Computed example of a mutant assay.
Amino acid sequence: MTALPYWRLSSFYLFYFALLGATAPFLALYFNHLGFSSARIGELVAIPMLMRCVAPNIWGWLGDYTGRRLAIVRIGAVCTLVSFSLIFVSKTYAWLALVMALHAFFWHAVLPQFEVITLAHLKGQTSRYSQIRLWGSIGFILTVVAMGRLFEWLNLDIYPVAVVVIMAGIIVASLWVPNAQPENQGNRLAGDGFLLQLRRPGVLAFYACVALMQMSHGPYYTFLTLHLEHLGYSRVVIGMLWALGVVAEVLMFLAMSRILARFSVQRVLMVSFLLAALRWLLLGSFAEFFWVLLLAQVLHAATFGSFHAAAIHFVQRSFGARQQGQGQALYAALAGTGGALGALYSGYSWNLLGPTLTFSIASLAALAAAVIIGIRSEE
């Protein structure tokens, strides 16, 4: 049996999610630094998420059709860096919108295909997925802490340079990873078409919940940093708070194999949705209280950690080997749809309705996901 290339797989997750750590907390801050309004910031942040509605399905189909998933990962990583580097040409709204769309088209090609490669290396040991994926969380933590300090010392004009350096790390990590192909999971699943598997009980409801959950994250990923700055928190403290959330996520990943062995995927998802609804209420109404803010960030263990691990497990068991890429891509696409809607509505409502009502809408979206998964679990 071939040994699991643990560190090679982990290094890729580290750099990939380091890039998310550079964009999720700080991209809106950078656009605010450039002088854009909250509505324009919401639109610019939504563009990469909208690309998740299109790009993963295109690349997912190509990966399933050709089987050359690792080549797609490497090409996507290189094109991500090249297209994002166009940001140095101009800082106008139209040009930045183009840069956001181009780099996201290639960036979102990468992760769904790499997830399939990782699961193929695990050879059915899906409980070990969280042990590899946690390095992505570590990369996120290191980035938000380092960038929080960097932007206290230097002007935000340095931001694009820092992002390009991380993108170069993704390329290097992708070149280090060995290839692997998923094995057939039984004749029925291997032979069934993607649409037929999609119509299996609970699968469409799951994807609807994914979109709602990511929609609920819209205000968090778009405006949390600006929200906390307005409340008087420093960028160093804000970076530490983002890191705290991901530390909680890491601890959850470490525990997920035991949790999924004891509880059903549907039960884990429902609890994650309910805790997300609570978290957004806390952030929208009580973030000026530091202890409440700490609690809200610890809840990231549920709103991302347990949710994502359970969702990956659900997708992996719901699709055959030949449809794994499309299943993961649809997960990314529905997450992108929800995330884009969340960024857009929060961008328009932030000044109009204020943080409290904007986060309350997010809470309702997460609660709706809990209701849907609860109904499906009882059928």
Rank of each mutant, 00 (worst) to 15 (best):
A180Q: 09
A180H: 07
Q181P: 00
Q181F: 07
P182A: 04
E183V: 14
Q185S: 14
G186N: 13
L189H: 05
L189Y: 05
G191W: 02
D192S: 07
D192P: 00
G193D: 05
F194H: 10
L195Q: 12
Q197D: 06
R200Q: 06
P201S: 04
G202F: 01
V203K: 08
L204V: 15
A205N: 09
A205P: 15
A205Q: 07
A205L: 09
F206K: 02
F206R: 07
F206I: 07
F206Y: 10
Y207T: 12
A208N: 07
A208Q: 14
A211S: 12
A211Y: 09
L212G: 09
L212A: 04
M213L: 07
Q214K: 03
Q214W: 11
M215F: 15
H217K: 04
H217L: 13
G218A: 11
G218R: 00
P219Q: 09
P219H: 04
P219A: 13
Y221W: 02
Y221H: 00
Y221G: 03
T222I: 11
L224S: 12
L224Q: 03
L224W: 09
T225M: 13
L226M: 15
L226N: 08
H227F: 13
L228R: 05
E229C: 03
L231G: 00
L231T: 02
S234Q: 10
S234M: 11
R235V: 05
V236N: 06
V237T: 11
V237S: 10
I238R: 13
G239S: 03
G239D: 00
M240D: 13
M240V: 03
L241H: 09
L241S: 15
L241N: 12
